[in-house]
Every structure is written in structure tokens, then in C-alpha cells.
Nucleic acid binder design. Structure first.
Length: 510
RNA sequence: GGGCCGUUAGCUCAGCUGGUAGAGCAGCAGACUCUUAAUCUGCGGGUCGCAGGUUCGAUCCCUGCACGGCUCACCA
């Protein structure tokens, strides 16, 4: 018995005592120890020349027949028929079958390959051919074990089903469920298409701080963290808005940032505490320009990634082609059976209306603290929101729930703001940006009051941002789009956890 | 946070009225040179999520806890 072998077996004994290894775990560890003792440690291998992927071989069969290829991937299936065997090798793109026998790879190596396990990472060199049953395959000439998997894979037919394990151990989900790999490839394509659309229209992509002493730009509770070096409490950003507008003040004219925002709120099928958002700002534009940009951007991305502007989401056809329906918030409430807010003159009348229509449940604050705007918003959520299945712009939001938005000319209680809804869910939010520093200062003051009254989601006062407006921000249109939500629609994903590789999970104390 | 449901072999799942657990895949041993959920023969594999309680006896009934799923609430 060599030194190495002693060491390896001792290690297994120790591990076994610590963790109570299953039979299968022990078998694989022993196989590894034996390989290492024989001087063929798979973990000592550093490279493999991969000339082709599985789909290239299958799609390019005519040009590749009888030609040599070198592939690599995970051993997913082993059909041993005695003096020959068929195995499936899975790479980034999918699987390709490999045929092997003793004549092809040599007697000794053939016996060695038979000791490999499902899940091992292997390299295969051979020529491309078609089996009698017509499956395009690689006839192996050389096979190398590149990495040993010392844990067994989930079941080959049913795969990994347990949602908890799929989210916690996404690597297994990716190995076992091809649809998951497709979804995440599509996620990348969507993000790339969004960038392409904006980059070709002279937008500058920037990066703004995630850590800051003020978390503003949205109504949400932030995560709190701390800088040791500065001995300072910091927040993780909840929006990029106020920094991007500073870029507009600085003269960038068109900017965007796509990245993570963090909101310290509930988790459900539509919300993950960290999520990807794009915000973009365009000088000399207003919310009407943002509507056009939004519908054109979304239909461009859908066309590019899904091959059509029409996609199926959870059994419902969604048509992303421009133009989308446009309707004011007041009109939408009326249209879907709610009261007519155009007849309401003041907060008092609005409160009466709220009582009459049973809106108290929808309101976040006590009725007596609610403005007409709060009540209109509640009525919208009750009557209209869930009806907005096809992409729809809801225009003109109450000023008191829109502290960063320009008022409507002629109606200071309303703002030039829209949100777009798809399948009853908010997808985006845009304004004609408020650029009057004095009004902005007043709006922040109002938010500060709300905060004092206990609303911990009221906007934090950002004095430096007001200072930037004092230097002068051109009239600007801005928009935010929830990238995760867009990806959900374009990949027909029910839950946001299905389009985030590693969704937030509680630790499972095992 | 509330309600409902789930947690059994590496994985996918059975397990009836309480009597210490089964199948398929995977694994191990063997047969098979065109299989593809390969097939055939044989064998091994369990802290029934955790902690209590009731009971002669608990995977099963009760309580609490943990994690997860769905849902309502919250959430721009």
C-alpha cells in the first residue's frame, strides 16, 4: 500500500465518521481514492480541448460525418450492453450520445470507463457517425475522466423536483432540468437586447452607488449596513433615480443603469429582496416620449428574443407590439366600474366617496389622513389594476404620491406620470421629471413630514439632489422597468424565483 | 404576519384504522457489440425534518419549532 493510498483511505474514514456517508457516497470516494493511488487523479487535470458542442455536432452532421471531434461534459446516462456501451454527454447546449467499445478505446481503458459514475465530467475524442437507429453520435477513440462527482445526481427521468432544492442548489437544477438552462440563457439575451436597444440610441450606461447614507428615489424600506472604515451606517440603494438625474444635470443627456436594487420587504412570486431594475433618463423629453420608448423597447426585445411581439404568458396571449393602450388613471377607474373622480373637488369629498365604495381596506393610512390622491390610487388598485392584461399605460398620477414628478399643466393635483401594466402587474413607471428645485424641496419636506408621522417608506430627503437641480436639469423624461418582471413575461415564468439564479432563501440549519 | 399544504432511501414517490417502512430510478455483483427512461438475474441501502406529548407501542394522533410551496395581507 502506497503512502497516497493510506492518506486517501484515512481521509474517507474520517469523513465517514463525521458525516455518516451513504453507501453511494462511499463507493464514489473509494473510486476516487483508487484513481489517485494509481496516479490518475481526475482533480489534477487542468485542461481539455473542446472542439465542438453537442448542438454543433447534431446540426452540422452532414459536414462532420466521419470527422474527428473533441467534446466535454457531464456523463448523464450509461447504457452498458456488454462489449459496447452508449453514454450521453451533456454540455452547455444539451446532450450528445457517445458509442464506445474495446476496439475503439482499448481493452484496458474500456474497463476503466465502465467504473465511471453518472455525474462525472468527461472528455471524449472520436468521429461523428449515425447509429443504426439514426442517432447522431460520437464513436469514441479516447476518453478521459476530467472530474469525479463524488455525490450522485438526482433521478435521471424525473429530475430534481423539490422546489426548495431547486432554488437552494440551482447547480443541480441546471444540470437536471434543461428548461431551466434555457430560461437563464434567455434572461441573458433579454438583458443584452435591452442594452442593444439603448446603446444604439446614444444612451450612456453608467454605474451609480449601491451604498449610500440616503436611500431615496422610491417608496420602500431599505436594507441597513455599516462601513467599518468610516464607522458609518449605510443603506443599500432602493432606486438609482436621484443619481441618474444628477448625470442629466451634468450634461449626459441620455443615461441608463441596469442593476440591482434592494428593498427590505416581503418575498412572494413577484418580489425578491434584490432585483434587477433598469432606469433611464432622456433630456428634452417628457412622459409621452417615455411611453413610445417603453412600448418600442419591449416589443424590440420580445421580437429579438422570442421571435414575435406576441408571447404566451401562463396561457394568456400578450401582445407587446406598439402602440399600447393609453388611459388616464381617473378614466380607468371609471371604465372598470369605479367612481368618477373627475367630479371630486377636494379631499373631503374623496373621503366620503371612499366610505361609499368600501375603499378603506385598500388604504394604507387612516381615512382621515388620506388625500384625494391616496383614495384615487386605492380605487385604481381595487377596480382597474387586475383588469389590465394587455400592455396598458395608466397616465396621470396624483401629485401627493409622486414626489419626483412634474405637475400637469393646469392641474397641480396631478402629475405627468404613467405606470405600465401587463397581466395586472406593474412593469414600469415613468415621469416627466420634476426639475424645479424649489418645488422639489417642498415635496421632500412633505415626505419628511410623512416620515415623522410614521411612514417609514416615505422618501428620504436628499439635499444634494436638490442642489443639483439648482444648477439646472433640462426638461427630462425618465423611466424604470422591472427587468425581472419583463423576463418573467418573456420566459413564461410563474415565479420570480424561476428567473433569478439564486433567489433569497432563509438558511436551513442542518 | 394569517390560512392551507408539504418534509419518508442519493432522487421521484407509495405507506389504509397506530403494531419499527416499500416501489421505480440510482448503487453494488453478474449477463449482453446499435442502446436511448436499454433489457435480464441477484444483492445492499432509512435519525420517516427537529423536539416534546399521548399510548403497551407513533412515519401515522396531539403540541411546539425549523425549512419550503401555495394563498391572503404587506410591497411603486
Amino acid at each position: 500500500m502506497s503512502q497516497e493510498e493510506t492518506g486517501a483511505e484515512d481521509r474517507i474514514d474520517e469523513e465517514s465518521a463525521r458525516k455518516a456517508l451513504s453507501e453511494q457516497q462511499l463507493v464514489r470516494r473509494e473510486k476516487l481514492a483508487k484513481l489517485q493511488a494509481e496516479g490518475r487523479d481526475p482533480f489534477a487535470i487542468v485542461t481539455w480541448k473542446q472542439t465542438h458542442h453537442s448542438t454543433e455536432i447534431k446540426q452540422g452532421f452532414e459536414g462532420l460525418e466521419n470527422k474527428d471531434v473533441s467534446i466535454a461534459g457531464r456523463l448523464m446516462s450509461f447504457r452498458d450492453i456488454g462489449k459496447a456501451a452508449f453514454i450521453d454527454v451533456q454540455d452547455r447546449d444539451g446532450r450528445v450520445q457517445v458509442y464506445l467499445n474495446a476496439e475503439g478505446i482499448g481493452e484496458e481503458n474500456y474497463a476503466h470507463v465502465k467504473t465511471w459514475d453518472l455525474g462525472d465530467i468527461i472528455g471524449v475524442e472520436g468521429y461523428v457517425f449515425k447509429t443504426k437507429r439514426g442517432e447522431i453520435s460520437v464513436h469514441a477513440k479516447r476518453m478521459v475522466l476530467l472530474t469525479k462527482a463524488i455525490e450522485p445526481l438526482p433521478e435521471k427521468y424525473h429530475g430534481l423536483k423539490d422546489p426548495e432544492q431547486r432554488y437552494r442548489r440551482r447547480y443541480l437544477d441546471l444540470v437536471m432540468n434543461p428548461q431551466v438552462m434555457e430560461t437563464f440563457k434567455k434572461r441573458t439575451q433579454i438583458i443584452r437586447a435591452v442594452r442593444e436597444y439603448l446603446d444604439t440610441r446614444s444612451y450612456i450606461e453608467v454605474e451609480t452607488p449601491i451604498l449610500g447614507t440616503i436611500a431615496s428615489g422610491a417608496a420602500a424600506r431599505p436594507f441597513v449596513t455599516k462601513s467599518n472604515a468610516l464607522n458609518l451606517q449605510l443603506y443599500l440603494r432602493i432606486a438609482t433615480e436621484l443619481y441618474l438625474k444628477r448625470c442629466i444635470v451634468g450634461g449626459m443627456e441620455r443615461v441608463y443603469e441596469m442593476g440591482k436594487d434592494f428593498r427590505n420587504e416581503g418575498i412572494d412570486i413577484r418580489h425578491n429582496p434584490e432585483f434587477t431594475m433598469i432606469e433611464l433618463y432622456q433630456a428634452y423629453a417628457d412622459y409621452n416620449d417615455m411611453m413610445e420608448l417603453c412600448e418600442n423597447l419591449c416589443s424590440f426585445v420580445a421580437q429579438k428574443v422570442c421571435g414575435s411581439t406576441k408571447v404566451s404568458y401562463q396561457g394568456t396571449e400578450i401582445e407587446f407590439a406598439a402602440p399600447w393602450k393609453r388611459i388616464t388613471m381617473v378614466d380607468s377607474v371609471k371604465l372598470y366600474g369605479g367612481p368618477d373622480f373627475s367630479l371630486i373637488k377636494n379631499d373631503e369629498e374623496a373621503r366620503e366617496l371612499a366610505k361609499k365604495h368600501g375603499l378603506e381596506e385598500e388604504l394604507k393610512k387612516k381615512l382621515k389622513d388620506c388625500s384625494k390622491g391616496d383614495i384615487l390610487n386605492a380605487a385604481f388598485e381595487k377596480y382597474a389594476e387586475k383588469e389590465l392584461i394587455q400592455p396598458t399605460f395608466i397616465m396621470d398620477y396624483p401629485a401627493d404620491i409622486s414626489p419626483l414628478t412634474k405637475q400637469k399643466p393646469g392641474d397641480p393635483s396631478m402629475t405627468e406620470r404613467f405606470e405600465c401594466f401587463v397581466y395586472g402587474r406593474e412593469l414600469g413607471n415613468a415621469y416627466s421629471e420634476l426639475n424645479d428645485p424649489i418645488v422639489q424641496n417642498d415635496r421632500f419636506m412633505q415626505q419628511a413630514k410623512e416620515r415623522e408621522l410614521g411612514d417609514d417608506e416615505a422618501y428620504m430627503f436628499d439635499e444634494d439632489f436638490v442642489s443639483s437641480l439648482e444648477i439646472g436639469m433640462p426638461p427630462t423624461g425618465g423611466m424604470g422597468i422591472g427587468i425581472d418582471r419583463l423576463i418573467m413575461f418573456l420566459t413564461d415564468s410563474y415565479s420570480i424565483r424561476d428567473i433569478i439564479l439564486f433567489p433569497t432563501m432563509k438558511p436551513n440549519n442542518q
